[in-house]
């Protein structure tokens, strides 16, 4: 289910098309022989947004990122960065991208400074500006003290920072980070999250992770990939994946009430929460997005002359949404 939808030329829709679109994937699919790694994936990311890409192993996150950065060619569809098609205008598109792959692409024999200089040269930073730029990027990522050390002698946390610093070289508009905290200890992960958070507003960031709390803490919006397809595309504040849930506390025994609740047109599921007082029923109702279940419930209960003690929306955690979204998909 989409919010603030944008319609493509072929009728498909995607969310969040307000403002300048820095990343646009339009019907992107990738096949390896008979295996489909990505199926008809479409979404846009406006300038300045931090987007979290969630999915289990093999869901297609890395493939999607590799297509956006031009490392892989899509079997179908187009990836557009800052208005440039990655396949047709690769040089222009790639100038706008900073990419940190899952395994940081580091040359162990180089010093951090030499490596960042090389990254700046690749990103076509002006020769006179490179030295200053390397210092600035090193300072931003906390590498100042190790700039003249060999990368091969650095700890895992520092190596990941060097990879991150490389992605920042040339101040690209779009920064793509593939599971940047994988393999880091909790402190290093927190530092990496702080670095990503510091990019908010200045850069458009696409961030993939297995760690749901991390995505929840960092991102403005989340896309869930499952079995190579987008199954959820939502703003963090509106994480409902096409449905919302209401918790109702009703002064009535559940025996006669539950069948009536299940018959309400907008209610797709009713779950009873046990442990309440006798004569009080507490339920969680799953409601299709856009349906007015509150009105139907009030009408039903007033007809039964039954008091409604409490009615409130259930705030889903990202974990709940992810599990429910992927579970529903499996059930299908």
């Amino acid at each position: 289910m989409c919010y603030n939808t944008f319609r493509y030329s072929d009728g498909r829709q995607t969310a969040f098309d307000g403002g300048m679109r820095m990343i646009r994937l339009d019907g992107v699919s990738k096949r390896y022989g008979t295996h489909r790694a990505l199926q008809d994936v479409s979404f846009t990311v406006p300038k300045g947004q931090i987007l979290g890409l969630l999915g289990q192993n093999g869901a297609g996150k890395t493939t999607a990122m590799n297509i956006m950065t031009g490392c892989l060619a899509p079997s179908q569809g187009t990836a557009v960065i800052g208005g440039y098609d990655v396949m047709r205008s690769p040089r222009e598109a790639k100038r706008l991208i900073g990419y940190l792959p899952e395994t940081a692409p580091l040359y162990d024999e180089m010093t951090v400074r030499a490596y960042l200089r090389f990254a700046c040269e690749l990103k076509e930073v002006r020769k006179q500006a490179i030295a200053g730029h390397v210092e600035a990027v090193g300072e931003k990522t906390g590498l100042t003290d190790v700039l003249d050390r060999k990368i091969g002698n650095l700890s895992r946390g520092y190596r990941q920072r060097v990879g991150f610093a490389q992605a920042l070289c040339g101040s690209p508009e779009v920064i793509i980070l593939d599971e940047p905290t994988t393999g880091l200890d909790p402190r290093q992960s927190a530092e990496m999250r702080a670095l990503v958070k510091s990019l908010a507003g200045q850069h458009t960031v696409l961030f993939s992770s297995h760690i749901l709390s991390e995505v929840q803490a960092l991102c403005d919006r989340v896309i869930i990939l499952h079995h190579s397809r987008v199954i959820c595309d939502s703003a963090m504040q509106a994480l409902r994946c096409g449905e919302r849930r209401l918790r109702a506390v009703i002064a009535c025994g559940e025996g006669s009430l539950l069948p009536r609740l299940r018959q309400l047109p907008s209610v797709s599921r009713v779950e009873v929460e046990r442990g309440g007082r006798e004569g009080i029923t507490q339920v969680v109702m799953t409601v299709e997005e856009g349906q007015n279940a509150e009105r139907e419930l009030f009408t039903l209960l007033s007809g039964l002359q039954t008091p409604l003690l409490r009615l409130a929306p259930v705030e889903d955690s990202l974990e709940d949404v992810f599990l429910r979204a992927t579970m529903d998909e499996n059930e299908e």
Binding site: G70, R91, Y99, P105, Y107, L122, Q166
Partner: peptide
């Protein structure tokens, strides 16, 4: 082997 190829492929260098 070192997976540094992605750095090059994602860069504007042809």
């Amino acid at each position: 082997q070192q997976r540094t190829d992605q750095l090059l492929y994602a860069s504007p260098c042809s």
